[in-house]
């Protein structure tokens, strides 16, 4: 049998992809948007309560309260992941529970827990930052690049 001609193959692939796109079920956009909005908003609402607790009762300044607030939210996200609840929330809410910092905590705890069976060093320690690692890398790089630019502009 003759080898496939790459040009004809590309055309067949494109035609097939059109058929796939046409038959593929569309995501329920509206439902997903509403779920993301409600859950994402609700998590931030809880964050605001926590923040106001630190500023109101413990008399911290808004700036001082930022750290404890995110730490508390991270604890909540981590704990719900441990209990096996956060993945259920995620199934319902999509980005609504991925984007808040609780989702960041979920992305740390879930691989750490998952790979415990591969040991505490290479499993828990090694896999903990499989998703959160890239976030830290890009956040750090962004802040350093912006910092350098701003420093250069000043001097």
């Amino acid at each position: 049998m003759a080898k496939k001609n790459p040009n004809i193959q590309q055309q067949i692939n494109d035609e097939y992809d059109q058929l796939v796109q046409q038959m593929k079920p569309k995501p329920p956009y509206l439902r997903n948007i509403i779920a993301a909005f409600l859950v994402g908003g609700f998590i931030c609402l809880i964050g605001q309560f926590v923040n106001n607790f630190y500023t109101g009762y413990l008399k911290l300044s808004v700036k001082e309260a930022a750290g404890p607030t995110s730490a508390t939210m991270i604890f909540l996200g981590a704990f719900l992941t441990g209990l096996g609840v956060y993945d259920e929330i995620g199934k319902f809410a999509g980005a609504g529970s991925i984007v808040p910092i609780t989702g960041f905590a979920n992305s740390i705890v879930s691989p750490a827990m998952e790979f415990k069976r591969e040991g505490y060093v290479l499993g828990v320690g090694g896999k903990m930052f499989t998703v959160a690692g890239p976030v830290l890398v890009y956040a750090t790089i962004t802040s350093i690049v912006i910092g350098l630019i701003s420093w250069l502009l000043k001097s």
Partner: peptide
């Protein structure tokens, strides 16, 4: 400050993430 400011500002969150992540992994199983 270019190299210290970012991590300084987020130190509490990062320590919390590592600590709670580790504790939860010890306490729970998937």
């Amino acid at each position: 400050g270019v190299f210290s400011g970012g991590l300084k500002a987020t130190a509490i969150g990062l320590s919390a993430a590592v600590l709670f992540g580790y504790i939860m992994a010890l306490l729970f199983n998937p």
